[in-house]
Nucleic acid binder design. Sequence first.
DNA 1: GTGAAAGCGCTAACAT
DNA 2: ATGTTAGCGCTTTCAC
Lengths: 343, 343
Amino acid sequence: MSVTIKDVAKKAGVSLSTVSLVINRKSHIAPETRKRVEDAIAELNYYPSRTARVLASKKTSNLGFILSDDHFSRAEPFYTKVFLGAEFEARQFHYYILLTTVPKNFREGSHIPRFLLERNVDGVIMAGHVPQALVDYVQNLELPIIFIDYSPGRGRFTSVFMDNEGGACAAVNHLIQLGHKEIAFLGGDKSHPSMIGRFQGYQRALQEHNLPLVPILVEDDDPETTLESGYSAAERLFKRGVQPTAIFACNDAMATGCMKYLKENNLKIPEDISIVGFDDIEQDVLLDPPLTTIRVQKEEMGAVALRRMVEMLEKKSSLIGQVLVPVELVVRKSTARAAGDRS
Amino acid sequence: MSVTIKDVAKKAGVSLSTVSLVINRKSHIAPETRKRVEDAIAELNYYPSRTARVLASKKTSNLGFILSDDHFSRAEPFYTKVFLGAEFEARQFHYYILLTTVPKNFREGSHIPRFLLERNVDGVIMAGHVPQALVDYVQNLELPIIFIDYSPGRGRFTSVFMDNEGGACAAVNHLIQLGHKEIAFLGGDKSHPSMIGRFQGYQRALQEHNLPLVPILVEDDDPETTLESGYSAAERLFKRGVQPTAIFACNDAMATGCMKYLKENNLKIPEDISIVGFDDIEQDVLLDPPLTTIRVQKEEMGAVALRRMVEMLEKKSSLIGQVLVPVELVVRKSTARAAGDRS
DNA sequence: GTGAAAGCGCTAACAT
DNA sequence: ATGTTAGCGCTTTCAC
């Protein structure tokens, strides 16, 4: 078979346990002994058998990553990138990630991820909306959990979010600095924490600049936040006879739908009206004009979650709470100085 | 700790190996003994330790799944779905899938997937274009490999493809049955095997119906197959003064670009001209009109690859060759009976 | 600081 | 058909 700890021990002229101690950096080993062992390892190109270590040490060095299937296969690869960020970070800590999906209508009695049944993970990361029944199941196993872009209704957990409020605030500040005073908010799905956060950011920016919150400029009754809802929300907004010089849309999909409406109604972007979105999806640069938006660091969200998990596992520090991943304003061509502004 | 094979043996009043034999369905066990063991397993809610099995049996029950990072995080979740299909299928065979990405510019000296260094997989599946250096590395490890939607230049391998030629042929047949006789081909990236296959399907369909291949109706000089190349290819085509009544575009992105050009030039779809694409990407239904296309079963491609891998592993049958996953015509609103046709 | 030895939970000959 | 036993490659007391 392949080279084992025994071979290393023999080559280095020490015992098995010494090699083990060197590998695991436990207790103190005489520098020269350590060197001999390390040389032997290098020469033999030795990699400890993960399986044997797991069996002997009672920790699996595996992490579960659970997503609902519809989230994962969405056209916008948000969660794919989150996973990528986590997987990349996991390499550093020598964890394997076992990725699996559960049906969005998961309930008691559904197929349970194998790595849970076999108790083959040290912890699990769940991204996006996951079924409560699954959360309960994992909790019963007493496995540490980290949520990404989600937090279950009951219980206290650690969750990683993007900075929705800060991002929205930055977006609206950008508009204000361009001289806009009549800034509409286009939103939807008011129950979603992200959407709530973004609306709060909108409010905060206005407030900080002593601009009034004009209810008639806020259009967020749609239950969805899609391209279509952006279009119809814009329609409803303008049918009210308002004349905003700028619009903050709660995400890029809605911004895109809104732009479609504006164009069809002969409003020039950004000459007549500026618009900024949120998310920085890939299509943004293909729009005409390219959309100013808030960039979300999806990979970083995954990486942060992974580091948090490792902390919980290794330092036993079970600090509970939210982690906010910073976002960033990306200025493209859909925003310009307000007409008539000469500040 | 948790319940072990020992507990089961004691409870069932048999030896360890009997339990092991029952679990692994090897040799024949008296039906009643088997029943006793199975009852004990059920009662104790016993799951064999995967780790211990791996250590004792020399097979990892893990499969590596490698993608290049840019493929995986594309906006169109093609490979995500392929992976999903493989992962889902893997559950049935009790394999874990270790998913990782490599940079597209991977070369000797790059970071090598950990599961390869640690020899912790029984085989590897690679999807999309993967670096030759990696392929060589895996081959040196003497691990079985299956490719999806790709096949390396040198060496003989098993690859899973979609049925490009059959799909293209079905698409063009559909047009012919609608009475079209002047059918243009819009393609690009002539070096890509998929594009070659699709052009062959176009040819075959014409041939089967005794229609001539008119070179001036073929426009495939663009090195890309994007929305933009679809637009410019259409432009070049029509600037030649031809008047096709239908167009087969080699993928939906090009079809979309082509539609944009047609609309700008006041050609009505499908009244004046029919168009069919290939891929069935999610945006198709949002187009105006919704695009008739060829559906590719992405999940099935992953599932097929996985089953093939399991066969290689378990039956040692190393049948080498291509596997074609069937595709399917999806008729929407972009195709209609040819004007003036009354068959 | 280093070595000896007892497992970790299972499989796989080999006996019976 | 079933039991006995020797590992698989490593970690981890416990001596020295």
